[in-house]
Amino acid sequence: MKLRLSMRVNGNAVELEIEPHRTLLEVLRNDLGLAGVREGCSTGDCGACTVLVNGKPLVSCLMLAPDAEGASIVTIEGLAKDGKLDPMQEAFVAKGAIQCGFCTPGMILAAKTEDIPEGNLCRCTGYTKIQEAIREERRTTRPQA
């Protein structure tokens, strides 16, 4: 039996029919084609599938899609506006915080709210340049803080 699911994804209203055993990750990747939501482990341990749900970073692999009913979701595809990178994306690019890039979308989204994104694994960078990028973003976007 399929369920109706309504949510906002990257600012757009989305309505679709889903099987209830689908995760938010599957719906975003497979039904909505948002491939930037990366599946690294599917058990909530790596953070690669992180998306913002009502402003909070969550692992979409452990969220049952029906639980996203009415939610506002931001994926990495929704961060850049009018072709201009978000300051966090810019900082990651400028500071060399990206190597293979598989963890990057989840890391950037988690870093929007977390100074130390401890729920996101990176195997390439050793995190040093990720920390630099987050500090740089905080410095440029919150100069008073």
Partner: peptide
């Protein structure tokens, strides 16, 4: 406990 993402769920 867990991570920020897990603590929120």
């Amino acid at each position: 406990m867990g991570s920020p993402q897990v603590r929120a769920m």
